[in-house]
């Protein structure tokens, strides 16, 4: 933090100082201008929000079907989803990359977003929450002649708010921070995210590393996350405690 407002020559001083000696905002402007961080910001926010929204929709529908509707082979489907939960992104990166190549989605928003729209974790988390809803509540809605979609939107969703918020926050943070896939699927600044942009900025430096600018970039990447963290802390900790995956 301190180093982000210092001139470069003071950053690696011995002994180090923990309060800024010569505060300046230069490094912030410098970092912001030396790579298209504004664009990276927009890309990241757009990508993370789209993934969160998409996952909420697909996971809600699937979890609803798996908890409250009759499906032949429900156990088998759920078992498959549990397996899906255990397959890490790193393992399937090569085949998914090849799929993206076939679809012509390399270096595009689709490539960044679509592979993550379905989530075994999301289905799992929401199913746990939907199971908590008392059966009589659903039966009563059925007696009142509510359709399946009405039961979902009027009874189930309002009763699962905290699980939905937890899923949204966790997912937003994961994808905002995700590095591996965006690194592979993008190859121009136009589609790069903050994490990838920062690593490029870090490694592009020839000669003297602009540490102060890097620290400034670190700070402005972290700001939205910490805002989200303080607003949604309760849900985050709850989410980690109940599910604990990732």
């Amino acid at each position: 933090m301190v180093n982000s407002i210092e001139p470069l020559r003071h950053v690696l001083s011995v002994p180090p100082h923990f309060l800024p000696l010569h505060p300046e905002v230069g490094p912030y402007a410098g970092a912001w201008n030396s790579a298209p961080f504004g664009l990276f910001y927009l890309n990241t926010l757009f990508m993370a929000s789209a993934i969160v929204l998409g996952q909420l929709v697909t996971s809600t529908l699937a979890a609803y079907a798996l908890t409250w509707l009759r499906i032949p082979g429900r156990q088998a489907v759920f078992f498959l989803i549990l397996i899906g939960l255990m397959v890490p992104e790193q393992l399937t990166v090569v085949p998914v990359f090849l799929e993206m190549r076939t679809l012509g989605w390399i270096n595009s928003y689709q490539g960044l977003i679509v592979p993550f729209l379905g989530s075994a974790f999301g289905i799992f988390l929401l199913r746990q929450s939907f199971l908590q809803i008392p059966l009589p509540l659903i039966e009563a809605a059925k007696v009142d002649g509510a359709s399946r979609l009405q039961i979902l939107t009027r009874v189930i969703l309002p009763n699962s708010k905290s699980a939905l918020i937890t899923l949204a926050i966790l997912n937003f943070i994961w994808h905002y921070n995700d590095f591996f896939w965006p690194l592979i699927i993008t190859n121009t600044n136009h589609y790069r995210t903050l994490a990838v942009g920062l690593s490029m900025f870090f490694q592009s430096g020839s000669g003297l590393t602009p540490w102060n600018q890097l620290m400034a970039a670190d700070v402005f990447i972290a700001v939205p996350l910490f805002l989200l963290f303080f607003l949604g802390q309760r849900y985050l900790v709850q989410g980690v405690m109940t599910s604990g995956i990732k």
Binding site: A62, L80, V96, L117, G118
Partner: peptide
Amino acid sequence: ASWLFLLPAGLLLLAFVFYPL
């Protein structure tokens, strides 16, 4: 209806998790 509800997530998981394996 339940298969219909399962479809979006199911297809996505099939395409990007199971088939890739």
